[in-house]
Design a protein around this nucleic acid. Structure first.
Lengths: 354, 354
DNA sequence: ATTAGCACTCAAAGCGTGAGAGTGCTAACA
DNA sequence: TGTTAGCACTCTCACGCTTTGAGTGCTAAT
């Protein structure tokens, strides 16, 4: 059977209604609310067809219709309109985001905005530093036998670790060490540094420092490892209680415990495709089969890095939310783009206009 | 009326039973479970007295008794036993905590442990840097027109901000600036620096740098301000669903939205008394009237700083939880104590080589 | 002073009924 | 032939009634 123009229209109406009310939608309501010049009976016939085709389901015999995963997929691919955001909202987002913050702060803020505007649980992961290029290593004195190792990368990430030393140091030693390490490692990616035999590489240059390198280098590696991890920020936990699908405690528990497994969620996000990705119901992993997940990525310094998104019931305002996420990531990208046009070896040249 | 020995014993039994079952406890159950050689009728009379005295309440005429806030208070002050923790648990806590981490990481970990061991919502705030003494300022080059300002304090806090400059710089300029700022500000508390007129103080020394100070100093102040804030880490959101008192969605929503108001919660914690503090029901602010809050503080470098605690129903295992929190803060204190001038005290020295 | 006994209370669970929303089918209609 | 009105049927949900059981308070006996 073909999806006639009329069937499409009805399907769209059912989906729209269900998204906004969370109630199964019946033929009568449909014919009233959407004045499509058809009687309930006709609509009923069409809906019956749509059910046969797998687009609608029946919770039980005397209830209205509910869209299937297949219907949502069609809706997202063809039917929904990703309209422009209201100026007011755009303004607010830009405003809240504006400030040359560090990636972590931006991610946190973005999750906040996203949850506020969508009324769903939101999250954002910060870039993994895997491909970040080391810019600067600094070993700084803090107290007797204690120093801080600071690593800065070209995309603005700064990580540090405090180390208790097993030996004494002088400020000159630390400075020398910082210089040598920076000189040897600058421009290399974090990942590369972690996989190369750094001790050997530095050994000759640092011979004069006796025990110092042995004390510091493990912690330096530690700091780099920290840079590999993505940080996950979340917001809007308690928003779920506003949704009728979670008025049942067990359902609420389900989604909230899911979201509390941070490593798991991080994994899901990291392994996601690039771009704006929407996965609905069955398309998700087992623990999210009755939810929908919308994510997008953002770039720092032209490098693909962080992700953000929302999680909620399949009945979500896909169009609107996609627009918000799109607008948000665009804004973040733009705000991180500006470190360009330096002479140092970055081949791609991006020009921001408009 | 006086609280006879027997009344106390009965009261304690009621509280103990209610804490473990969440069901109003009746005279019959009590006489069975606690074989105190008294018939239900006698217990009934005593309970009636206890009710008159304000220690017990009746949800309704034909239900058992429930402890009042006053009863919990008595229990916490006199009746409960703060036994020692099982070795197994101690071992686990020490193990998980052991590693010279930064205050932020420690707080996060502590919240995690606390929620795991108590099965309640837990949180930990990191020190406010208000009284931290500045140790080191460093302005470091990151890219053209971009530098990172790093501030290190004596208690191991490290904060940094990336700044886009409005003027050019040379490495020498930055170094000079770092030196001058460190020299002028070292040993002063963050709070003091924020309230003094720093620009004026530095102006003469930095005259040679033209526009650089104007670019950097506001961001430096920004970084210091960040140090004032306590970071709040939480864990165990979804634990509430295991408690019968939150099987009602509205109750669950109540506690979870409360906990999501991070600034509010931070405030509550910051304004709390020192030491192990337990507040029950009415003793709390309006939005926690039917919960109990247990907190304690921990010190970094001898300075009173962070707090951690749990939030849950008034029916909580006060004794056990207090022990855990006590043990946890003791451990944290010990692990942060070492920056002192006594070289002794660290049992194990880790040596990594390869 | 304690306890057995009994009447009483109240929440919670179970049951039956009726209303309402919706369907599917059939027959009539343009 | 596609559309529609009509009608019987189905199923959930809300309501009220009854029963059950846990627990109390009081009284009288020990």
């Amino acid at each position: 059977m073909e999806l006639s123009e009329r069937k499409l229209k009805i399907l769209q109406a059912v989906i729209a209604d269900f998204i906004s009310t969370a109630e199964p939608v019946g033929s009568r309501t449909l014919s009233k609310n959407h004045d499509m010049g058809l009687s309930p009976a006709t609509i009923r016939n069409e809906m019956s067809d749509l059910e046969d085709m797998g687009y609608l389901t029946h919770p039980h015999a005397s209830a209205g219709r509910v869209p299937s995963d297949k219907a949502y997929r069609l809706y997202v691919d063809k039917l929904m309109n990703t309209g422009d955001l209201p100026e007011e909202m755009k303004r607010r987002i830009t405003e809240e985001l504006e400030s040359g913050e560090a990636p972590d702060a931006v991610a946190k803020k973005a999750a906040e905005i996203l949850s506020d505007t969508t009324n769903l649980i939101s999250f954002a992961i910060t870039p993994s530093g895997r491909e970040s290029k080391l810019q600067y290593v600094n070993v700084l004195p803090v107290a007797d036998q204690t120093v801080v190792i600071m690593v800065v990368t070209d995309d603005g990430k700064v990580n540090n670790t405090a180390v208790r030393l097993t030996c004494d140091y002088t400020n000159e030693n630390l400075e020398l060490m910082s210089k040598v390490m920076t000189h040897n490692l600058k421009g290399k990616t974090v990942n590369d540094i972690l996989t190369m035999n750094i001790v050997q590489t530095l050994e000759t240059d640092l011979r004069s420092l006796s025990a110092l390198p042995q004390s510091v280098i493990p912690s330096f590696m530690q700091t780099l490892k920290k840079m590999l991890d993505s940080n996950l920020y979340m917001d809007g936990y308690s928003k779920v209680f506003n949704l009728p699908e979670y008025s049942d405690v067990d359902r609420a528990r389900e989604i909230l415990s899911l979201v509390e497994k941070k490593e798991h969620l991080t994994n899901v996000l990291v392994n996601r495709d690039e771009g704006l990705v929407i996965t609905i119901g069955d398309e998700n992993s087992d623990d999210m089969k009755d939810m929908a997940l919308i994510t997008a990525d953002y770039k720092v310094n032209g490098r693909l890095v962080g992700k953000l998104g929302v999680l909620g019931p399949k009945r979500m305002k896909y169009g609107e939310i996609s627009s918000v996420i799109k607008y948000l990531t665009d804004n973040i990208n733009r705000s991180f783009e500006i470190t360009e046009d330096k002479p140092e070896g970055d081949p791609e040249e991006k020009e921001t206009d408009e």
